[in-house]
Nucleic acid binder design. Sequence first.
RNA 1: GCCCGGGUGGUGAAAUGGUAGACACAAGGGACUUAAAAUCCCUCGACCGCAAGGUCAUGCGAGUUCGAGUCUCGCCCCGGGCACCA
Length: 803
Amino acid sequence: MEQYKSREIEAKWQGYWEAHPELCQANDSSDKPKKYILDMFPYPSAAGLHVGHVESYTATDIVSRYWRAKGFNVLHPQGWDAFGLPAENYAIKTGVHPDFVTHENIKNFTRQIKSLGMSYDWSREIDTSSPEYYKWTQWFFLFLYENGLAYKKKAKVNWCESCQTVLANEQAEGGICERCKNPVVQKDLEQWFFKITDFIEQNKNTAGLLEGLDKLDWPESIKAAQRNWIGKSEGSEIDFKIVGSNLKIKVFTTRIDTIFGCTYCVVAPEHKTIQELKGRIENWPEVEGYIEKTKSKTDLDRMEAKEKTGVEVKGVKVVNPFNDEEVPLFIADYVLAQYGTGAVMAVPAHDERDFEFAKKYDLPIKKVVSPERIPMGKDCFTDDGILINSQEFDGLKSEEAREKMTKWLEEKGLGKKVINYRLRDWLVSRQRYWGAPIPIIYCEKCGEVAVPKEDLPVVLPTDVDFKPTGESPLANSKSFHEVKCPKCGGEARRESDTMDTFVCSSWYYFRYADHVNDEEFAAKEKIQKWLPVDLYVGGAEHAVLHLLYARFFTKALHNLGYIDFDEPFLKLRNQGMIMAEDGRKMSKSLGNVVNPDDAVAGFGADSLRIFEMFMGPLEDAKPWNTQGIVGVRRFLERIWRLQEKITDEESKGVRALVHKTIKKAGEDIEMMKFNTAISAMMILVNEAEKNGIAKDSYGSFVKILAPFAPHIAEEIWEKLGNAESIFASAWPDYDSGLIKDEEINLVVQVNGKMRDMLKVGADIGQDGAKAAALESEKIRVHVAGKEIRKIIFVPGKLLNIVV
RNA sequence: GCCCGGGUGGUGAAAUGGUAGACACAAGGGACUUAAAAUCCCUCGACCGCAAGGUCAUGCGAGUUCGAGUCUCGCCCCGGGCACCA
C-alpha cells in the first residue's frame, strides 16, 4: 500500500482547514453549551516558536477539538502580546522600527502555529499593538482613573540605568533588572499607579485577591506564590513616645509578645521623623552622612551587605509603653522604609536580625520568651514560647500574650491591631516608546485632564526617535506632545509615558469575545456568553505578574458593575518545562535548543504533537528525546497500515477494546492526562494489528486519535470513504455493555500477598470466590493447617485470605 | 530561613488503599535480506533456581491497615518560588 507521507498529508489538510475556517470557529449565536479554552498569548519574539509553546498549544488544541466533537460551542482564539521591550531594544540597536519587526515576527509565529495544525479561531485574532486594540487599553486606564483606581504620585521607583526606564517591583526582583540583569537604582519620579491594593481583601461584593484563590482550580504552587507575593501579615502598631517631645515613632511588629525584650528601636534612613528631629540630634552630621550614603546605594547593595550597619540617633530616646523604659534609637538600612511603618522595635533575644545588630553595636539582649520544651540554649530564640520577665504577662503563651497585649495597648490608646501587606500598588508608567500611550493631558490651567473617551485612541506616532534618553521618546515628538486642552482649549501637553505591557495583557481575554467592537471593549451579552475562561494554560513564570494583574482587572470590572463574575480564569494549568536532551535548560548559549520547525520537517507535525503529549504529565518538566519522537512516528505508521488490517469479522476482544479505549481517551482528555490516553490508543493498535479491526471500529478509533494527530486522522477518515471533515463528526459513543468483562482475573492473596490469579465469572460472589480459591493448589500450600481468621473480598477484583 | 512540588527499572513513565513497573525508548537475541535499512518475533528490576516457584524491591526510618508507591509522623536528597517584609 501507499506509504504514510506526513509532509503531503499535512500540507493537504492545512490547506483544507484554511478553506474551511468554520470547523473551528466559535459561534456567537449558537445555543449549545460553551467552553472557553485559552492559551496565554505569546510575545512574538524574534526567536520564534519554542517547543514549550508547542506543548501547551497542543494540550489546549486537543481539549478544544474534544469539546467541539462532544457538541460544545468552543471559543479557542489566539493573538499577540505585541508591545514590549525586546522589539524596542532591537530597534535601538539596528534602527529597524519595532512595528515592522513585531509584525515580521507575528508572520513567522503564525506560519509556525499553522504548520502544527492548531485549530484556533483565527477570525478573532488580536494584536495589542494595533490602535483598534490599544484604544481599549487606554479606555481601561481611564476607567480606572475615573473610579479612583489610577493615580499619579511622586515615588521612589526602580530605575534601570541601562534600559533607561522605570520598572515594576515584579520586574526588579532582587534589585536586578529583569531585562538586562543590571542593578536597579532608586529614583524619585512622578509615576502612574493602579490601586491593586484596594482588592487584596473583599471590596463591597467583590471577593478579594487573597480569598478568591480558594475557589479556583489552579495549581497549588501558583496560589501559594500569589499568597506569598501579597504577603499578608497580622500584627500590632505600637507608639513609642520620643522623650521630651510630643512626637512619636510608630513601630510595626508581629511579635508584640516579645516587647519586654525591646532594648532599642530602629527606623529606616528615609523615615521622615528623623528630619523633624534634626535640631535635637547631637550627631546630626553622622546621621545625615548615613542617610546620604543609603540614598546612593542600589537595592542590590543594600541586600548584599554582609554586615548590618547603622547609626545611633544621639540625643533622642524613645519609650517602651509597656514598661516605660527609655531605649536608644538607631537608623539602619536593614529596616525597609516601604514596609509597615518604616520603624521597628528591636528585640535581639528573639529576632536574628536584631541579634546580629545588637552583637555588632554591643547593645543589651534581654530574654523574655522561654521555649516550651527544650531549655533555652541558643542566644537567639525566634519561636513562640512562654513569656518571662514580662510583668503581668509572665506565664502566658506567645499567642495568648499577643492578643492580651494588643488589647492592653488599644485600651490605653497606645496602639492597635494592624494588617500589613507586601503587595504595593502597581506602577504602570514606562518611559518607553513601544507601548500604549497613557491618555492624559496636562493643561496649565486645568491641570491633569483625561482624554475624552471619544478621542481615543491616542495614537502612537510612528515618526519618533525611540532611542532612550531618560524621558519618554514620545516627549520628543512635537506633533504628539503639543496638544489643546480638551477642557479649556488652551495650550497643553500630552502625557508622554506609555503603559506597562502587562496592562495590555490584563484584559485581552475579554476582547476575544467581541474583538471588532468599536463601541465597547466587549459587549455585555458577548461577555456573558463566553466568559469566564474555562481552561487557561501557560507557563508558571506568570504566577505573580500577569495572573495577579488580570485578576485585579476582572475584580475592578465586577466591583463597578460591568460584569457578574470576579475571577477571570476558573481552571489553570501550567505546562512543565521541556528540557534539552542533555537534561539542562534549553538555551541559545548552550546551543541545545530544539526548533519545532526542524521537528516538523523531520517527523511531521502529528508526530511532534503526540510525542510532546506522550512524554509525561503536562505539568512535569521533562527532557527532549529524539529517539522518543522516532518511536511516535512509528506508532503513526502502524496506525496508517491498519488500513490493510480491516476485516469484516472483528474479534470480540478487539471490539471490546475499541469501546474501552473510547471511554478511556475521553476521560483522560477531560483530566488532561494525555500521556495515558495515548498509551491506551497504542494498546488498541497493538491488538488491532494482530487480530484485525472492523471498518466502523477503525473509524471510531481515528476519531479519538483526531484531536492528537489531526492530519493523519483526516486522511484516514477520507480514505474510509467519508466526504466530510472528521472534525464535523461527533465524538463516538461507547457501549457500556461491551466494556463489561464476562470473565475477570481474580487476584487471590494470603495475608495480603498475591499467591494466585483465577479466571472466574465477573459476577462471582464471596463464597464462590472463596471456594474457587481453596481449590487452588497454590493457595492451599499457604493455608494448609491454619485457621482462616478473616476473608476480605473486593467484588470483581480480589480475595484476601487472612490466616 | 519560609512556602510549593518531587524522589518508582538503563531512560521517559503507569498504577480509585488491592497483580508495582502498563505504554514507550534504549539494549540484547532471532527471522527476513547478498547486505543494510525498514518490518516482524522473543528477552529485558535484582537475587536464588533447569523449571515450577521463591525472596527482595517504589529515597531512609517508624506507624495505621487484612493489604501501603499511594494514608500519618520523623528524617535525607533534588527542583521551583519568595526572602533583611520585623
